[in-house]
Design a protein around this nucleic acid. Sequence first.
RNA 1: AGGCCCGUAGCUCAGUUGGAAGAGCGUCCGACUCCAAAUCGGAAGGCCGGGGGUUCGAGCCCUCCCGGGCCUGCCA
Length: 334
Amino acid sequence: MITRVFSGIQPTGTLHIGNYFGAVRNWAAMQHDLECIICIVDYHAITIDVDPKTLRQASLNMAMDLIASGIDPEKTILFVQSDVPEHTELAWILGCVTSFGDLSRMTQFKDKSSREAFISSGLFTYPVLQAADILLYLADGVPVGEDQVQHLELSRRIARRFNSRFGETFPEPEPVVGKKGGRIMSLSDPTAKMSKSSGEAHYVGVMEAETSIRKKVRSAVTDMGLESGDAMSPGVANLFEILELSTEATGEADLVDTLRADFAAGTLMYSKLKDTVFEQLMEILRPIQQKRAKLEASGEVLELLRFGAEKAQTIAQDTIVQVRSVVGLGTANP
RNA sequence: AGGCCCGUAGCUCAGUUGGAAGAGCGUCCGACUCCAAAUCGGAAGGCCGGGGGUUCGAGCCCUCCCGGGCCUGCCA
């Protein structure tokens, strides 16, 4: 039985609808039944080149996006990672029970390092910090997408090795699967997951201006003309996916059925599909954008994050005291 | 600590004895499309890493600095 869930998200400055439908919305649903901890992972962000002038603001923006998207800072512990420096201490200690070979096998490192000119050792040990994030809170559940299962496996491995070496300390975190697959693909390249790093045309920002969103949806790749009865192309399937996820909340699910029937009959106009996707999407995004604007005007994020960091640190410090004790570190806690 | 190589458009790079800064990809606009993609047409985009020097003239030569890569060594 899972009781406490940890999630991290990088301070990329803004959320896109892939983040929203794939992760954030599930977190918002979970926070009513489970103890949720959501961390804006700025220590992770600095593993690749970042601009120090924008990092802090990116963290604050991400926090505001999350709250506007339904994360309730009263229910969920929401904070910025570096406000709780215990993360780094635990990462060091866990790094010492992590094998070099395990880290070398991480595919995401191989991926990212091949793209960077400067490869920091932090990029290499990133999964250790990720394990520390989870284990610091003794979280027993981690909402996880396809691409993160390998990292979670490593976290479990690290927890297991630590426990066997120093005594039962950490639960082995279980993957928590969201209720819906919710994997949204890039609009320009529907074979790749939606991400900000691929470029402007690839993603739709949750806080993006309506005119811009409309344009991006209209520009989505479809297909080169199908015979009726042909399988749906990845691009069209992706649009249907977005539509389905949107209408789930707007209560207009019959729109999807109608359009699907049109597709099956070979009479679907993609321009109509796109307009519908755009309209339904905006039904979801508009209230979020309004909430976000109010939040920004109020200037209360800093206070909310400080509140979150305090709650997080209370848990984190208990863990660190325990860890230092079983490992034999320091003189304060024999 | 020593040796070698690199830094030019958002990205990957070309740039001849020193003589008017370029290409591909990406971006923006247009044509074509039910809408898009692909394709075609057009446009924007640059402190040539930075300072100093040589020269009538420097992306190119000299020098120092900054940043990055590889190799060897030293310390922990």
